[in-house]
Design a binder for these strands. Structure first.
Lengths: 207, 207
DNA sequence: TAGATTGTTAATCGATTAACAATC
DNA sequence: TAGATTGTTAATCGATTAACAATC
């Protein structure tokens, strides 16, 4: 079954299931059901069962899902069994926060290289990584075979930096720049723009 | 036409249209079309016209949309004609980055108050705001009639803090904590969890 | 005028849900 | 066994798209 036959919206929910299962495991639970998971996430139990059914049969009638087992299967499906090296570009306030964030490693990612153009920043330490010269990024990423990048540069630089990331062989970009970037169809892009979320909510508020 | 009759997925795209129109205006463009907007965003022109048609008629046959006019209308629809005060809770690395972010004000938001529980941080300045004592948050938010909050606390605190925000009258929460929070149905919540985006993309990558 | 583009309708497409036999 | 819950089918629901008359 080729990945492309599975709706992208389903793929998007798997990490949410995994996150919830991890919380349950941390709370000492051993089993859960599609109903309980759905309650927790505000999703129907039928949807959860249907989503999972794209990948196999992971539960047991009567008892539901073994949390450890289902977590393991989701990690396998999402290719999270080993840790992905991620390149971070841009060390402003946001880049610094991302570099310091402790929540990546347990969930399959590691900031493995940090780049900036500012000569004052190059060489500075951030955690135990040295900030590296942006001009070395392309060859460096290529050499280290890094495939995932996070973009925390000003929006005016986003497309330029992206073009270099593409030449370096990056195949997945999480961009914090509030602009659409152009990439070939085999490269995946996700966006984070907090203002879009805020503006969506104000629609529903009384002025 | 009550807001509730408009699909939420449509509301979610309006801020994206607005952002794109702002970029076009900044580039000196005066008119655009549903086709051009769609090209830029990777959305069909029909979808854009349909989305807008929920709210009125903003274009002209033959010439398309006046960018300034449509931007103004979208701002009105999204209630962005004046600036919303936002409370920020949690001044770790992420909270600090959010407090320093310069991209809010032009798009309708202003970090108006910052709270933390750490006695060492209370009183410290962050930009031109003093970090305030979390214990004063509830009455303070109530008094100032703040309705929007951003949550940048550890996930273990997220629900506790949320419960206090609800008592203070907060109606919209943008949470950076990687956990589902429980709120009454008249309160809106949006989430930002970068790891969910990364995990979605690795599904499509070769290991 | 001729060309371009809107707003809207109807058709299509895809996602969600309800229901239930199977079975732990 | 009786109760619970799965995986799956078919029905429903909702969103997207194609097409086009209207008109700038």
């Amino acid at each position: 079954m080729p990945p492309s036959s599975i709706p992208e919206i389903v793929i998007g929910r798997l990490p949410l299931y995994l996150r919830t299962l991890s919380r349950m495991a941390a709370a000492g639970k051993e089993y859960t059901s599609s109903h309980e998971l759905g309650q927790y996430l505000g999703i129907s139990s039928a949807q959860i069962r249907k989503d999972l059914s794209h990948f196999g049969e992971f539960g047991k009638q009567g008892t539901g899902y073994n949390i450890a087992y289902l977590s393991g299967q989701l990690k396998r499906i999402l290719k999270l069994e080993s840790v992905w090296d991620v390149a971070l570009i841009g060390v402003g306030d946001l880049g610094r926060a991302i570099a310091h964030y402790q929540g990546f490693i347990d969930r399959g990612f590691r900031v493995a290289a940090v780049y900036d153009t500012d000569p004052d920043k190059i060489g500075m330490k951030i955690g135990d990584l040295a900030i590296e010269d942006f001009s070395k990024m392309e060859t460096d990423i290529q050499k280290r075979n890094i495939r995932v990048a996070m973009l925390a540069v000003p929006f005016s630089e986003a497309q330029n930096v992206t073009d270099i990331l593409l030449k370096a062989g990056i195949k997945a970009i999480l961009s914090y720049a509030p602009i659409s970037i152009k990439v070939p169809s085999d490269v995946h892009v996700e966006y984070i723009d907090p203002v879009l979320h805020l503006q969506k909510m104000t629609f529903f508020l009384d002025k």
